[in-house]
């Protein structure tokens, strides 16, 4: 099966007054139809930047230096702005982290959801409204008729995030990117929204790129997981395999720091140190100064990617085979 989205050897650089810094290096992954792929990592690892690169909404100071992103077989790198407008919202869409700010405060909910249909379809006003009400019911928004006329400030955070999901879902996109869609919500609402994503996964033929810093959340919805650290992919594989047999020391630490019932009463594990800042990244493996298994070569060169069965890959010197040299 051909992948829906292919990211190949993507480098994204920030143009800062102090010079040019690579924020994403050598990012490669595929998303297949109907697949849910999760990206996990701490803040500042380049998760959101990856999603912005795919949507073509990189901030002004960032640009793609190298590599290719292709969607349904055609490259996104050289689309005209008109072609982008056709693609976005129609086949490729995004859900933002903050439901408080991602809705326009002065427009009604109904109008905002219908906007996508107005842009991408030739439905009449009444047909659009029917479609919107249907989608609102589908994402679990009660009293859709009344909410049609409501403004965002009249809704709770969870409801607003449902509205964002309805906006993304209504055009039946091929790929939805959800950038930390549950981070701004409290835990009970978070689990409701995750259930909603499960339902969407079952009922729609939509692929999903799900970004989160929480492996627990990723585990609940994803098939495939990508672990990112300091702008690099360090491990990638099937979710069960990655959680049960994590290979990279960083993934192991992330899993160790998920709270669960068996760890009751103990002090929760935290990874010492922080993610190096963009300007402070040096040669070698960026995780080396926080890694308990650090080898000599970790400080001098970034490891190659080693592949295991089932497409599980890891970038770590610990897995270098004998005779691989450096």
């Amino acid at each position: 099966m051909a992948p829906l989205l292919s990211v190949q050897a993507l480098d994204v650089a920030f143009q800062l007054p102090e010079g040019e810094f690579l924020a994403l290096e050598n990012i490669s992954f595929h998303i297949y139809p109907n697949e849910v792929v999760g990206i996990v990592g701490e803040s500042g690892c380049g998760k959101s930047l990856t999603s912005q690169a795919i949507m073509g909404i990189l901030p002004g100071v960032a640009s793609i230096k190298h590599g290719n992103i292709s969607f349904q077989g055609c490259s996104l790198n050289d689309l005209s702005s008109r072609e982008w407008q056709e693609l976005r919202g129609n086949e490729l869409t995004m859900i933002f982290q903050e439901p408080m700010t991602s809705l326009n405060p002065v427009l009604t909910i109904g109008r905002q959801i219908a906007e996508v249909l107005k842009k991408h379809t030739s439905l009449s006003k009444i047909e659009r409204k029917q479609q919107v009400i249907k989608t609102m019911n589908e994402v679990g928004l009660p009293r859709a008729e009344a909410l049609w006329k409501a403004y965002p400030h009249q809704l709770s955070g969870g409801m607003r995030q449902r509205v964002s999901i309805a906006m993304a879902l209504i055009s039946r996109p091929k790929l939805m990117i959800a950038d930390e869609p549950t981070t701004a919500l409290d835990v009970t609402i978070q689990s409701q929204i995750l259930d909603l994503f499960q339902t969407i996964k079952q009922n729609h033929s939509t692929s999903l790129l799900f970004i989160s810093h929480d492996l627990g959340v990723i585990q609940a919805v994803c098939d495939q997981v990508i672990v990112m650290y300091a702008g690099r992919i360090v491990e990638q594989g099937k979710v069960e395999k990655l959680i049960s047999e994590p290979k990279h020391p960083y993934t192991q630490s992330l899993i160790q720091s998920i709270p669960d019932a068996t760890k009751r009463g103990q002090r929760l594990y935290t990874i010492p140190g922080t993610v190096p800042h963009l300007q402070e990244r040096q040669v070698g493996c960026p995780f080396s100064n926080r890694c308990t298994y650090k080898l000599k070569q970790c400080e001098t060169s970034f490891p190659d990617t080693y592949e295991f069965d089932d497409g599980h890959t890891v970038a770590c010197h610990l897995f270098a085979k004998e005779g691989d040299g450096n």
């Binding site: 982008w84 407008q85 976005r88 869409t93 326009n104 002065v106 427009l107 906007e115 842009k119």
Partner: peptide, 27 residues
Amino acid sequence: YDFVKASIAKGGGAIHIMIKHILPNAV
């Protein structure tokens, strides 16, 4: 603001965003 980015992510063009999204906020 995020709602402007959200509108771009839904295929909104510059003029659409300026008139339909930003102008009502700047009234």
